[in-house]
Write a protein that binds this DNA or RNA. Structure first.
Lengths: 267, 267
DNA sequence: GAGTTAGTTCCACATAATGGAACGATGTGG
DNA sequence: CCACATCGTTCCATTATGTGGAACTAACTC
């Protein structure tokens, strides 16, 4: 808690001692879209060689990484195992699941459940539009808050100080022609969303993809997330989204209430 | 590598220094089926209070755990994020995916892809039987080798020494009336599987669930896994499984070859 | 086969983890 | 309502662990 400014007045110590460093190395490997060589990781991290080498060995020994032939490092299976356990027992997901299904039946399109974590929305569950193409599961995927319906819905209900804090940490990246690129324009959007009670994604993250989303927040604001209906632009017009906005919002409210009851003060 | 017997002649140091300890704490929380209190974790770990408390704080700071109201610890979202990235970019899975789909079309039942890790099979991908009930995704789930078709198929192709090593580490648990409970009986089953080229699960893990599986092994034996077709006993008889055995084995061979080519010496 | 780059090992040193003990907070029963 | 017990958190001297520069080896390159 009071780690800042202890050892030397500046350091802004990012990372929790040894664990933090190990995880940032892990993150480098996991974030890459192909197996990495030692020196590539070395270039991406700011660790000295000896240190990095030992950290990697440890991660491999623990099964968080595997080292294939040709000395490349890739994510290990133990990560999957961890995630399975945490996902399958996630209470928030379990509480929300029936509402997702209901919303899916009402709209026929893909429904997502996401949770706000820092400046990202992490997808926790979904019900797919139909079985046509086996879409890659989004579960566990993280998207920036500023260009997703879920992200904007979640932000729009944050209390002042937490919103300011989050906005301060944003760095923008242009995904499409419609992506917000400044705090100012994002803020205007959030204001509208707050008034309406729901947020849109007008092809801001991917072209030809639109969505409506509404926020969920548990007791206090320790858990903030949202639920959304997403579809391809050719069959999901903005008018259609306006129509779905109501059921989406209802579902979000229902989940919030359920969360309150099932995960709230009593237990 | 040469960590054993350094500091004090015995210690059999399980765990990679600080990281290993942190992970074993994480494992305790993640393995539990409900959020745990500090003292519960304390009882399950063999760490002193002060130490454990700091480790937990670090895990929370890193987002691997979250501490809900009432001071309970639960798995954090960062785990999901890690897993998503590693799953979606897993080359083995990508190579095998078309074969899974093909096998699913041929059989109409659920197809699983798994990898051997220690004494467990970890499910890496699947294609579901049909969309009736939204079955909990098994991806990332770990099951014991000795009571699953995939596990036995994988074991049956292991070289002598690795098999012996793995068998030595097994501890048996009776899941159903048919579960193997001794190395001897498991070995007989493996011998048959080795001869045939495929393995069965005769309701050994869950009653009313049967499967056929065949092994996949990449270059050398650094990657051993399998593919299986699973179904409920009422519609999947042993005779049916015998019929499917052939396509399953073919798919396994095809995947092995693809893996060899796509992930083999060339890259 | 000399030169370059990538990967691994080593070890004196300093930092970060350790764990016993003291301190609050919470809650339980007499 | 107060004594007592349990649970969670904080503190700090000790030391185990991680650190990182440098020396070493292996693997490519020209």
């Amino acid at each position: 808690m009071n780690r800042e400014g202890l050892s030397s007045p500046r350091t802004e110590n990012s990372g929790t001692g040894t664990l933090g460093k190990a995880l940032s190395v892990l993150e480098i490997v996991v974030s890459s879209d192909r197996p990495l060589r030692f020196s590539e990781i070395l270039a991406l991290s700011d660790q000295p060689r000896g240190t990095l080498h030992r950290q990697l060995s440890h991660l491999v020994e623990e099964g968080l990484l595997i080292q294939g032939r040709d000395l490349c490092y890739e994510p290990g299976l133990r990560l999957l195992k961890f995630a399975y356990r945490s996902w399958s027992k996630n209470q928030f997901r379990a509480v929300a699941a029936p509402h997702l299904r209901k919303l899916h039946e009402e709209t026929g399109e893909t429904v997502h459940l996401g949770v706000l974590r820092g400046t990202e929305i992490i997808y926790v569950d979904k019900v797919e539009s139909r079985q046509t193409v086996r879409m890659e599961s989004q579960i566990g995927n993280a998207s920036p808050v500023y260009c997703t319906g879920l992200g904007k819905a979640a932000l729009s209900v944050l209390p002042q100080h937490r919103l300011a804090e989050t906005l301060g940490k944003l760095t923008f990246h242009r995904f499409t022609a419609n992506t917000h690129l400044s705090v100012a324009s994002l803020k205007r959007d959030l204001d509208e969303a707050r008034l309406r009670g729901y947020a849109f994604d007008r092809e801001e993250h991917e072209t030809e993809i639109r969505c409506v989303a509404a926020a969920i927040h548990g007791a206090g604001f320790d858990l903030v997330g949202g639920i959304s209906v997403t579809g391809p632009a050719y069959r999901v017009t903005m008018e259609q989204l306006e129509i779905w906005a109501h059921p989406v919002r209802q579902a979000a409210v229902a989940i919030s209430e359920d969360v309150e009851v099932r995960l709230g003060p009593g237990r």
